[in-house]
């Protein structure tokens, strides 16, 4: 399990990497085609928010949907 105490022992970059490794498969299950970029976007959020998303499928899903909209607007 990924806990805040484990994260606090790592560098900021390593923290994002650990969170990304756990978020990516979950994002991929929701939105397979843009999962790399969506995970990249989510990693710009606070680590506390990312930890919350890992524990709350509803939060993750709504953030992924929001990220898809932002991404599509950005690419348009």
């Amino acid at each position: 399990d990924l806990k805040a105490t484990v994260l606090s022992a790592a560098s900021p970059g390593e923290q994002k990497e650990m969170l990304g490794e756990r978020l990516f498969p979950l994002v991929q299950a929701i939105q397979p085609t843009m999962s790399n970029k969506i995970t990249g976007m989510l990693l710009e959020l606070e680590n506390s928010e990312l930890l919350h998303m890992l524990e709350s499928p509803e939060s993750l899903r709504s953030m992924v949907e929001e990220a898809v909209e932002v991404l599509q607007a950005h690419q348009a």
Binding site: P12, G13, E17, L23, P25, K37, G40, L43, E44, H74
Partner: peptide, 22 residues
Amino acid sequence: SSSVNWPPEFRPGEPWKGYPNI
């Protein structure tokens, strides 16, 4: 322009480069 490359892609198993170490 840097906005063209936004957002950075996360790739499992690779170092995360999108977020600079502070």
